[in-house]
């Protein structure tokens, strides 16, 4: 059975991710132990809340290097996707994992769109990828975020919230989902299943 580690570092929606993976039949390990993380078959970095708090937690727990060096499939979810990038302009500016280039910025859509972006938006598929296998263009996903990642070569799928929202990104063995696959019904389950089936 596929095994997956979900990082528990005090800034994540761990239980909902865990339950979604268990619904797919995966064996889920919850840990914040650097050695266990390093030795995981595949790794999920969840996250909700503030980037500064999350990075401070990862640093205190000695997890930054194990995450950066992780050689097998890694998926950042929501804030976990944002943490993959270089910096965030949240607060006074936060240095993040730097696995993807660029700065995560506050979401500033048109005046008639509330912030945070909260709710179901459609994905437009930009580049084919094993993580998106079987997914239809226009599939619906559940987003909750007030910051947005830089849009660039890493973008595999995009949502539109008046501004382009990189919804799925990839750099080598690291993927990110801005939305919550664990809360995105069938499309989310498909993405998580694809992640569990990536070669590890």
């Amino acid at each position: 059975m596929t095994s997956v580690t979900v990082l528990t570092y005090g800034a994540g929606n761990v239980a909902s991710v865990q339950f979604a993976l268990e619904r797919l039949g995966a064996t889920v390990r919850l840990t914040a132990d650097p050695a266990e993380v390093a030795d995981s078959e595949r790794l999920i970095l969840p996250g909700v809340g503030a980037a500064g708090y999350a990075m401070a937690r990862l640093s205190d727990l000695g997890l930054i290097e194990p995450i950066r060096a992780f050689p097998r499939p890694l998926l950042g979810v929501c804030l976990g996707q944002q943490l993959l990038f270089g910096t965030s302009e949240e607060g006074e500016g936060v240095a993040m994992l730097g696995l993807l280039p660029g700065t995560v910025r506050a979401l500033t859509p048109a005046a008639d769109r509330p912030v945070p972006h909260m709710g179901w938006s459609q994905l437009s598929l930009v580049q084919p990828d094993p993580l998106l296998d079987g997914l239809d263009d226009g599939a619906w996903a559940y987003f909750v975020h007030g910051y947005v990642c830089p849009d660039g070569d890493a973008t595999l799928a995009r949502a539109d919230y008046g501004v382009p929202v990189p919804a799925v990104v990839r750099s080598a063995n690291r993927w990110g989902c801005q939305f919550h696959p664990e809360r995105s019904a069938a499309a989310g389950a498909r993405i998580l299943r694809n992640f569990l089936e990536l070669d590890a």
Partner: peptide, 8 residues
């Protein structure tokens, strides 16, 4: 409830 649901 969380185990059951795949929506928020």
């Amino acid at each position: 409830i969380a185990r059951l649901l795949d929506i928020p």
